[in-house]
Write a protein that binds this DNA or RNA. Structure first.
Lengths: 224, 224
DNA sequence: GTCCTTGCGTTAGAACCTATAACGAACGCA
DNA sequence: TGCGTTCGTTATAGGTTCTAACGCAAGGAC
């Protein structure tokens, strides 16, 4: 999208532009009907082209979706990164995450929703995921309270298996806090976005805020 | 499945039996390829029938899936109910939930996974969901610690909007704890089942256990 | 400016899918 | 034994992804 004009040859520029427009339409479809309803045929028709033309630009439906997942991850990393720029408070990251999720629920589900059985994310996507995790670890390492001294059972387990942190020099309590941040906020967000709270009258934002509050306090609270 | 033999007329018995077999095959397909790959045609072919025959038994793909969702909810309610029978410890419910989820991940995603845009669950399904919530509230109400006295901001918000608890006489702290139970354990389970922990070396079971531990302790810990 | 190559978009078609319509046969009930 | 309901069939319409083969047009080379 940004480097569409940076292409060398006219053909490459045109190609990049068409690819961008295809993804644009794809995002529109996903925003309204979800990823499962994404139809290459419909996109082509919408663009005034006839069906198989799109296969010049994407190997197939899977490759397009993989590209969209990549963009979604990139977008999330940017959103979280922007929030982590200054203060780097854990609550700020949480807020950025929620904003990003509410802005386009289907995009959230594209990243964190029900996985496709055969699908395995390519390396560059998992790299972006690690990048997000690093931001989270930074924030969590910066917020280690004095109460984090006591080692929890899970803390020691994490100490022994901390390869996933990619060499990040965070204490076990921070590792645990980062993991809890991820799983707890995903828990609230995914249930909210999936509509499991509709009917129940309480405000999901306040439940989310309560979880963020708990996260800002004790990490493994009462563990051991 | 159970009441297949309770039918009055031979026709009804046969019909119930065929419906049961269709659902059986559907579950097999879902277990291997997920709900999105469920094909009425394939089921029919597998049963030696030709395509449209299944429409005598289900209005369409949607009705079959709705039925499967209903069965999944029922199964979850039974599993949780069985665990709540005796001691009624919160940890026991958590363990039952995890067992149920790991037994068939795709079944879990059928209930808690990415929602289909147009779909709205029928009343009897939401009723089962309420039933599960009631079991959870029972367990949480029985585990109110002395530390739960202090009213958190979210606790008072829940006190004001407690219709979703269906008149359950649980203190606000128990309501909060039940909600946290649901969202936190779903957070860990769904990320684990979706494969977001693969590559990271830690044991998901221990993270789950740590969350259960935290749940058994302070509910809104440090809120306010 | 002219040729030649490369790539784009087309139509045709195979193999799926859901879903409806119309027909014939079998089954159960009286 | 007859009759009506229900079942399973085939045919059909319309949708999807994706491959193959063809023609045209645009870019680069000279």
């Amino acid at each position: 999208m940004t480097q569409a004009e940076g292409g060398a040859t006219p053909r490459e520029r045109y190609r990049a532009q068409v690819r961008a427009e295809i993804k644009e339409r794809a995002w529109e479809q996903i925003a309204t009907a979800g990823a499962s309803a994404l139809s290459l045929n419909a996109i082509a028709k919408q663009m005034g082209m006839s069906g198989p033309a799109l296969y010049r630009y994407f190997r197939g439906r899977d490759e397009l979706i993989t590209e969209l997942v990549r963009d979604a991850y990139r977008s999330l990393a940017d959103a979280v990164g922007a929030a982590a720029k200054d203060g780097a408070e854990v609550a700020a990251l949480a807020h950025a995450l929620r904003e990003w999720a509410l802005a386009d629920p289907h995009r959230y589900f594209l990243v964190y929703g029900t996985p496709v059985p055969g699908y395995h994310a390519p390396d560059d996507i998992t790299a972006i995921a690690s990048e997000i995790m690093a931001l989270l670890l930074d924030a969590c390492a910066g917020a280690v309270g004095p109460a984090d001294a006591g080692a929890t059972p899970f803390g020691t387990h994490l100490e022994e298996n901390r390869e996933w942190a990619g060499g990040h020099p965070a204490p076990p309590a921070a590792l645990h806090r980062a993991l809890a941040f991820w799983t707890r906020l995903h828990g609230v967000l995914s249930l909210e976005l999936a509509g499991h709270f509709t009917g129940m009258r309480f405000d999901p934002a306040q439940l989310f805020a309560a979880e963020v509050d708990a996260l800002a306090g004790p990490p493994g609270a009462r563990g051991a």
